[in-house]
Design a protein around this nucleic acid. Structure first.
Lengths: 249, 249
DNA sequence: TAATCGTCGATTGTCGACAGTTTAGTCTTG
DNA sequence: CAAGACTAAACTGTCGACAATCGACGATTA
């Protein structure tokens, strides 16, 4: 018998996915400030603007609720979550907690392949640093840390990390630029990897503490600077969504 | 497994919070084995049986998906999640990770009131031990550990714990009885509390490791015992579950 | 004979509508 | 002039309907 199915990996065409698209559009709207923190997300309004019914909007909102971008209040709808400093601190506190754990686990389960993957990702970080593309830099940084969780091989841990990262990226997106010197951030990953390779738990956690702690302080500082003067006042009327901006295919 | 509608009669309902009620009913159906692991949850079927429309059923399913009881596969519906040993291990691994952290935090933030609350809960555990009510015992045990997370004062950490506990309790509920000697389990909380009161991080984590590790091993043992691999057409290999026993989550 | 294709029933994704509840705004009333 | 009662508009929760899609099974082809 011969292997019949197409062996080649095709880009899983899942983009008749209305819900996913709506979720992306809403996320962008929030990140870009068109939907300010605390503002109400009116199902019918979004639906009308996108030319669809309320059902997929609702599902998308639920999805974003799970991701922590929106909060649902029964009988009164979805609201864009307000970012308080305490939230940031809680997120980073948890992140620190699980990343220590994941890093130690990863060290224990490290193979030559996974080690090389990490090294390669650090290279990518360095190369990205030249591009002056903060969003990309954040993305590749995320990739590195995600790799660690993948190597740790606990799906639940990985999912949790993804959830936290989604929230953090939103915050970072709002802030705009996170690092002053992109190369600096690339370089700081090296001792962390070294510690993981060495497999010494104390050194690993110490490096994780330093590494994550640094980001924590930076983000905290920036958020505090931006002094979220949450205006509970009404949302600017008119078009807040731009379908052309987010719709893929 | 043949995709068919829910066979068993479910209690009719009328009150408000339809979604919550449906979620509870579905949860019961799963726990009681009327919805075996891996079986399909047909929206229309449930809706018809409860005398409501598909919308609230859908929402309830999404809720249970978030809780991990169901899994959603796009375009083909919701399924009762199958329990794999690996899942249990992953849950406990994460639990251990965050409970260490929470316990250290709790020690740092301990007040006389919160300390007394913990002590009282240990008393409750002892009193409950006489009742020969395993479910209640598990519940009070959960309360104790939840207290620690409350004292740690990180809402996100607390929510995560609640999520994990919900899953674990379901497993434990299905197993039936977790502890041989209820007083034994009550007693093992005492050195943990002592360590927290002393505020020595190493001792705390050591006790948490012992305490949670014990539960981990017990649950793992029991699940392994009553979950021999079943080869059912359509069920992917590698899964450890026993539909006949109704072991799910 | 085995793999692939076509067909058909079952089921999800999406839609528009309606009723009850919440909210915003207006009108009393002390 | 402030506090409360009322009213109307806006919105969510829920419903029933329809088309697109999935899975199963039998037909078809090599």
């Amino acid at each position: 018998m011969r292997p019949m199915s197409l062996p080649v990996g095709l880009p899983a065409l899942a983009d008749s996915d209305l819900v996913g698209q709506v979720a992306r559009i809403l996320t962008q709207a929030v990140v870009q400030g068109r939907l300010p923190p605390g503002s109400k997300v009116v199902e019918a309004g979004i639906a009308r603007e996108l030319g669809i019914s309320r059902a997929p909007v609702r599902e998308a909102a639920r999805l974003l609720e799970k991701q922590g971008l929106l909060v649902a209040r029964p009988r009164r709808g979805f609201f864009v979550r307000k970012l308080e400093i305490k939230n940031i601190d809680e997120i980073y506190d948890l992140r620190l907690c699980i990343e220590r754990h994941a890093s130690v686990l990863a060290a224990r389960k490290l193979t030559t392949e996974s080690r090389d993957a990490l090294r390669r990702q650090i290279d990518v970080l360095h190369r990205t640093a030249d591009l002056d593309d903060p969003a990309r830099q954040v993305e590749e940084d995320y990739r590195f840390h995600r790799l660690i969780f993948e190597i740790a091989d606990n799906r639940r841990l990985l999912r949790l990390f993804d959830d936290l990262a989604a929230e953090l990226r939103m915050v970072i997106g709002l802030i705009g630029r996170l690092y002053d010197d992109p190369h600096e951030i690339a370089r700081t990953h090296e001792p962390l990897l070294a510690a993981i390779e060495a497999g010494h738990p104390e050194r690993i956690t110490a490096h994780v503490d330093y590494h994550i702690g640094h980001a924590w302080r930076e983000v905290g500082k920036l958020v505090r600077e931006l002094a979220p003067p949450v205006s509970d006042a009404g949302v600017p009327p008119g078009l807040i969504l731009d379908p052309a901006n987010g719709v893929t295919v």
